[in-house]
Design a binder for these strands. Structure first.
Lengths: 152, 152
DNA sequence: CTACATGCAAATAGTTTGCATCCAT
DNA sequence: ATGGATGCAAACTATTTGCATGTAG
């Protein structure tokens, strides 16, 4: 039950996607939610709740609403949560198939983030599943290093 | 500059190791520090500061002291910090070579933790380094799934 | 003695929750 | 109308910090 690491990240996310998913759960399409999704569509890298808040047209909603929207969007799989190990959650819009996922390479000096195509080998993950007897394996994987600019 | 994934986890950590490392930095061998290290030696899995605190002889020290000890032990590489994505740091005694490291498989239902031998392939990590131009690559990798008992 | 270690209280930071009010459907 | 959505304040959790006091070397 592993996700495959194809990388179809060129597909834009349609607003219709949101409406569809919300409707089917009788949830509402509100101003804040649309604005938040719009901001995330423009973010190039996983953003913290505060960053999203800051990128929003000022006063459009509360930080709490951003957090609540993240939970909601995460649940309907329009957003994915990342953890770069600094105690702050980062959120990124899911582009393309829900099944796809990718990892990041973060500069420990300047926080530059690069999206990676590489993923943990499926064969190896399956071996772990078999050896351990665990099911529905998934993994959390991020890389850290020093980017070219910070090496100077 | 990647760590190798050998797994020499049978070697016990000598107290001498601690004394040595503390001495060389003119740091002190105190009761709390010895007790904390003793508790960690007995923990089989990464433990949170609170768990370590709870396992300590009662009243031997403050939670703050546990946190400070973790920072210290982490710095002298006697302890390694792990992040299972739940917003709480976990600490584990480094057994064997400082260069070694390992990853975990965590049950999302009962939190059972299994230590893994598998690691992200070195060749692949090197390729990431070359492609990105980043240096001193390292990775954070943990697996999640449902353990045999929780599958019933 | 003296620098490092600790306890206690308080500050931070991120995130969540309670509740009254508001609004999309 | 009415159940979900939001704002505001407050609660929570994990972790860190300031400062006076304690103690290992």
């Amino acid at each position: 039950m592993n996700r495959k690491c194809h990388h179809a990240q060129s597909k834009p996310v349609q607003l219709g996607n949101l409406e569809e998913k919300l409707h089917s759960r009788s949830l509402k399409i509100t101003g804040p939610r649309q604005a938040i999704l719009e901001v995330m569509r423009q973010e190039r890298h996983p953003a913290t709740a505060k960053e999203i808040m800051a990128a929003l047209p000022k006063g459009i909603c509360d930080l709490v609403t951003v957090y609540r929207a993240m939970h909601l969007l995460e649940k309907i799989e329009l957003v994915r949560r990342f953890d770069f190990g600094d105690g702050t959650a980062r959120f990124e819009l899911v582009r393309g198939n829900t099944e796809d996922h990718h990892h990041h390479l973060v500069c420990t000096a300047c926080s530059l983030v690069v999206e990676l195509e590489e993923c943990f080998p499926n064969a190896l993950e399956q071996r772990i599943a078999q050896t351990s007897g665990f099911q529905r394996l998934s993994h959390r994987l991020e890389f850290f290093g020093i980017c070219p600019k910070c090496q100077l």
